[in-house]
């Protein structure tokens, strides 16, 4: 059983953290992963930086640009992660855009993920139908779970379809926005959380986008198995560096 499914089986409200690999410094990737695990994070999304991250807001775009300037590449990331499973036990997911994976070779990418002990991928610009037709077999061969997104605009029919082809969890985008918005959750958003929760999907849902503090984390996990914090943590790294990860995580929930 994939580590993602094992982790999701518990009844704990899960906290996942996203950060951009190679940011703030090129060599920070492994330290950040280890610190997140010791701080009690349940799983981690490692961002593979891309020059043109369409679905992300300014925070993640800037961290990606800096990571690329620092010299981060796909090969470099796999090198940094090669011994990660000697210590880290929680699920690790790589989140990245499709073009760098395509250039690396999708099969080689999946193979490297398997070797490093990466459990899943989130690829915002790889549509479900293209995945099913062209890449599903490769992912399955290497035991890599591909996570799909839904949004408040996704039709019920399409949600059912995505649920039927998903494994692990469904990434529920909280609102019609790119990453890093901090508007808080209004009644519409809560209604959407409730609506999805009531659909009794076979896959658990993890909510992401717009979660930046304890309050929004609690609101989101009232209706879902867990929540993902990205831009807020990247901002924290920018402001406070890599030595205060545990205080950031502690402030998010009572452990």
């Amino acid at each position: 059983m994939n580590r993602i499914n094992k982790t999701l089986n518990g009844d704990k409200k899960l906290l996942s953290i996203y950060f951009t690999a190679g940011y703030p410094k090129l060599e920070d990737t492994v330290k950040i992963i280890k610190d997140l695990e010791t701080s009690g994070v349940d799983f981690i999304e490692i961002g593979l930086p891309f020059s043109d991250p369409l679905a992300d807001g300014p925070t993640i775009q800037e961290s990606s640009t800096q990571a690329l300037k620092n010299g981060m590449t796909t090969n470099m990331l796999f090198n940094q992660l090669k011994d990660i499973r000697e210590t880290v036990k929680i699920p690790l997911i790589i989140m990245g855009y499709f073009n760098p994976m395509l250039q690396y070779g999708v099969e080689k990418f999946c193979q490297k993920c398997q070797e490093a002990g990466i459990d899943g991928l989130i690829i915002p610009d790889l549509p479900v139908n293209v995945y099913n037709e062209e890449y599903k077999a490769i992912f399955e061969h290497y035991g890599i779970i591909n996570i799909f997104l839904i949004t408040p605009q996704t039709s019920e029919e399409r949600i059912r379809f995505i649920d039927s082809v998903s494994d692990g969890f469904i990434y529920m985008v909280s609102s019609a926005s790119v990453t890093g918005s901090t508007k808080g959750f209004g009644e519409d958003t809560k209604a959407y959380f409730k609506r999805i929760s009531a659909m009794n999907l076979k896959n658990p849902q993890i909510i992401g986008f717009g979660i930046n503090d304890k309050e929004t984390f609690n609101q989101a996990t009232e209706f879902a198995t867990g929540a993902i914090i990205g831009s807020a943590f990247v901002k924290h790294l920018t402001a406070s560096g890599t030595n205060k990860t545990s205080s950031f995580i502690k402030a998010l929930r009572d452990l």
Binding site: A55, P124, V130, T154, R158, A176
Partner: peptide, 11 residues
């Protein structure tokens, strides 16, 4: 060609 778009743009 094709449509390699994030789910947010699908609708």
């Amino acid at each position: 060609g094709g449509a390699f778009i994030p789910e947010m743009l699908y609708p």
